[in-house]
Design a protein around this nucleic acid. Sequence first.
DNA 1: CTTTTTGCATTGCAGTCGCAATGTAAAACG
DNA 2: CGTTTTACATTGCGACTGCAATGCAAAAAG
Lengths: 199, 199
Amino acid sequence: MPKRVDHRERRALIADALMRVAAEQGLEAVSLRHVAAAAGVSAGMVQHYFRTRDEMMTFALAVVRERNEARVTRAISALGAAPAPRTLLRTMLAELLPLDEERRADGRVALAFLAYTAVRPAVAAALHDETAALLGFVAAQIRAGAEGRIDPERAAVGLLAVMEGLGIYLLGGHYLPETALAALDTQLDLLFGPEPPPG
Amino acid sequence: MPKRVDHRERRALIADALMRVAAEQGLEAVSLRHVAAAAGVSAGMVQHYFRTRDEMMTFALAVVRERNEARVTRAISALGAAPAPRTLLRTMLAELLPLDEERRADGRVALAFLAYTAVRPAVAAALHDETAALLGFVAAQIRAGAEGRIDPERAAVGLLAVMEGLGIYLLGGHYLPETALAALDTQLDLLFGPEPPPG
DNA sequence: CTTTTTGCATTGCAGTCGCAATGTAAAACG
DNA sequence: CGTTTTACATTGCGACTGCAATGCAAAAAG
């Protein structure tokens, strides 16, 4: 086996370029040649690492999900051991919101993929599992931290929906970041009772 | 002026076909020829009523928004005079969720347009105004109906976000319609206090 | 050394795209 | 009547698309 190169690295390089194109011009502008140009490589090389466009798209979708997962994991582990459920949820959900330009770019790509998968149900299965896992985690936190007034499952569905909806509105530029964060805190107030965050 | 035809009617016919194509295959499949085929007319006729593709897209986007507005207006007026704020909000928000196949199709198109406008900020201004108007209305209802415990503005942002997020998850097939409705009612419980709906 | 496999570049092809140009039929106007 | 204006239909062009095919250099294998 000659000229060993790191396949994952190359694919990640190409996927990065793809996401740059998608964030700036939409998924419809993602073509072999555009991505190649954005990555500064030849179109043939892109074709060498992704035999079809769909294969490239699927890989990029996986990258988006892994990025989000890494972000959440990092933010949570930075909280130290056994944080309060409310703090944990607030940290996690705020991390998932497109509050800075980097996350906005990722969010635009995620939104484009959301519309993409809405028409290709086969690809949407992975997202389904991700939501289910997230939902279970959030419900557990609510169960642990909130008073027993409300059904944790239902409250978790609502809380995740708030996060998702705020993300959409933020991407559309309808709200300022502080408005979205205030709405998120208000939602947590409703679930956990009013509690001014320390610091 | 010869051969008088109703321009609005023709444009609506074409826009209907466009939305059928967009709902089934995504916005990227919306081309002059595809739309013409779906409408059962020639491509030249489409070009006669929309000089550019962008003009056609913009018109279709307006149609989506008008459909939603009409749906909400109809559902609200069916409530009779002076309904309770909570009832009003629940009716309105439930009407905006993609709970049946017709609204799912519209929702897929709306989602596609959302991703579309995320990359074309100039087109997004109209959506911005719509959100602001909706937000003011929801805030007024909350102010009128909920106890003074919470800031109506923030609560309105959260409530709209819940609706939007539930819509996204419903389109992705992550939740059943009854799960989404239960989450919506839970959210209203949080704002207005637990109150079993009559009937 | 030769052989073989891999990495990548280039080229070409069939198809689709938006859009302009052109043609034609028909109806209102003078 | 003729003229003009509207409502389409058809054709064609340049640009772009995904993708297959082909070529070629370099490095590992024997």
